[in-house]
Design a protein around this nucleic acid. Structure first.
Lengths: 337, 337
DNA sequence: TTGAAAGCGGTACCAT
DNA sequence: ATGGTACCGCTTTCAA
């Protein structure tokens, strides 16, 4: 039943013996390096396959003194976007012959830096930072240790490659859409003072101006939470005249607002349109059906991997700040037309 | 600026030289094995510290032909409970001198099995399965390859160590609480036919009987989603007489129900109490304030690690099925009394 | 093109 | 208790 005949796996020598050549040649052939006669190469490949040979990464790492490990920090694995980015990083890394070692325990800067040191023990040769560490100084410190890419923030002022969604554009998509369904008085539920929210707010402002709606420009400062959306709702719904629409900094806030609207008997989308940001799973439910701006975890991860590979190839390249395009997802919360 | 003086790290030999002993001794001392005179051990430790020595895991693995890597599969990293369990696994593994290699790309059984094979290349010596693979046959196949622990399901019929929350108890906690705030007509929103939901339903039934409320026993079969909760709400709220309370199979369903209640102008908790299950972040918001049954990711992870270590120590032990205790979290949705 | 041999940084066995 | 030494599986000169 539990036979587990775990005979040890074949080694380079086994392949060499079977192919009747030297170990060095097998090594070269397997990796596709050096000058190996096509004929010989085939013979070796065949032998390797027959033996079901698998290179021992530990040995390879030891001998070559270089790893193909990417250390990946995740600030908040509970955040679905970060979680999905992390997932895609592991997938994409594999496709590039790299292996992503994850540390999910980086929800504070000291932990994040500790985690990086831990990963360094495992001989990572580069790092991908997903929302951690938070402080710029800490980020810079990591980037000084290893070729690194930060995903989730622009980090204009830090010497590091970074990838994030173009929130200026995202806000523009939201406003454009709202205008297209006839909204004019569009209030923005801001996320606060972070550079990301500032950019989103900028996008909102630009778009409002573009549509000649600057007179209706209004930002309610809040945070990225259900409660923030709810309290914004309480403020708005006590006024004499309702706005046409609310564009929230994220889906959570939008959901809080929807909740409050229901309590006040305000019909969405007929009396009020709502647009969120992020496209969390819940927003797609028939019940909420929240129109929102989708950030693609996959695109973010792909852009990140691309930057990392570029930097690995050219460590001296100047830091690139990549912006990934968001996408509008229309649902019932703006189905006014 | 980018000085990167990456001189190579000190090795065992360096430490040996500095301490004036042999490499073998250093090896023993560092690992705390064998007979090393206390005095010598100290000398070595000191030398190692001064040199900032760090053992090379690749070399260690190669020489000892055994790894301290735990392969960890996560079925759905977007699920916050699974995500947190994964996080705790990495933390706890570290505390036990093990290193958790995660694969987050296991959202289908073939992928999950592929991921395990990939991890095996990296010489994992055991596995922790968090909600993946799904099919019992696939799970059994993994368990046959490696010492494994499954977290998230009981798996009575599979030869594998497993850990999950005691849903019978969880349901009992929910019902007891509802009864204690005066509810009698308590409807259960079931999650379907999975063994887990069946157990939860069983717990509901037992508790109702215990309180002499069997006449009010009623299960509405649904699923673990917002929409399911909402449609259940539509059914319930069209009846002549409202139940006193609803105990939903998870928070999402409860949230859907709350949403529907708001639309129907039904006051929670005054007219209807609601209890969820899982305690997702959102439920803790002031806005939703959903009473719920909390599953501890940390407890689940700890129990899992414990089982894994036990099995590593004794591969022949018969499979253990551990149940972790859930906890009632009281919030406004049942704040009736 | 191919092969031989010297490590890479440890562990483990055998003497001492 | 401590030291010597032969590997672990692969990469990498260096010759042939």
């Amino acid at each position: 039943m539990t036979i587990q005949t775990r005979k040890k796996p074949p080694t380079l020598s086994d392949v060499a013996k079977r192919a009747g050549v030297s170990r060095s040649l097998v090594s070269l052939a397997i990796r596709g390096e050096g000058y190996v006669r096509a004929e010989t190469r085939e013979k070796i490949t065949k032998a390797a396959q027959e033996l079901n040979y698998i290179p021992n990464l530990a040995a390879r790492m030891l001998a070559s003194a270089q790893s193909s490990h990417i250390g990946t920090l995740v600030g908040n694995i509970t955040n679905p976007l970060q979680a999905e980015i992390a997932k895609w990083i592991t997938v994409l890394a594999g496709e590039h012959g790299q292996n992503a070692l994850l540390s999910l325990d980086a929800d504070a800067d000291d932990k994040a830096e500790g985690a990086i040191d831990g990963l360094i023990l495992h001989r990572i040769s580069s790092a991908i930072l997903i929302g951690a560490p938070y402080e710029k100084a800490a980020i810079a410190r990591v980037a000084a240790k290893l070729p690194s890419v930060y995903i989730g923030r622009l980090l204009k002022a830090v010497e590091i490659d970074s990838v994030t969604t173009d929130h200026v554009l995202g806000a523009g998509l939201a406003v454009d859409h709202l205008v297209s369904v006839g909204c004019r008085k569009i209030v923005h539920l801001g996320g606060g003072a972070s550079p990301g929210s500032q950019r989103m707010q900028q996008g909102y402002e630009n778009a409002m101006a573009r549509h000649g709606l600057s007179e209706h420009f209004e930002v309610l400062v809040g945070s990225y939470s259900v409660d923030s959306g709810a309290s914004a709702g309480r403020v708005l719904f006590e006024r004499d005249n309702l706005p046409d629409a609310v564009f929230a900094c994220n889906d959570l806030a939008a959901i809080g607002l929807l909740n409050e609207a229901a309590k006040h008997g305000i019909a969405v989308p007929d009396e009020l349109c709502v647009v969120g940001y992020d496209d969390v799973t819940m927003s797609g439910s028939e019940t909420l059906a929240l129109t929102t701006i989708h950030q693609s975890a996959r695109d973010l991860a792909e852009a990140g991997m691309k930057l990392l590979l570029r930097r690995l190839a050219d460590p001296e390249a100047s830091p690139n700040k990549t912006l990934v395009l968001p996408r509008l997802v229309v649902r019932r919360s703006t189905a006014r037309q």
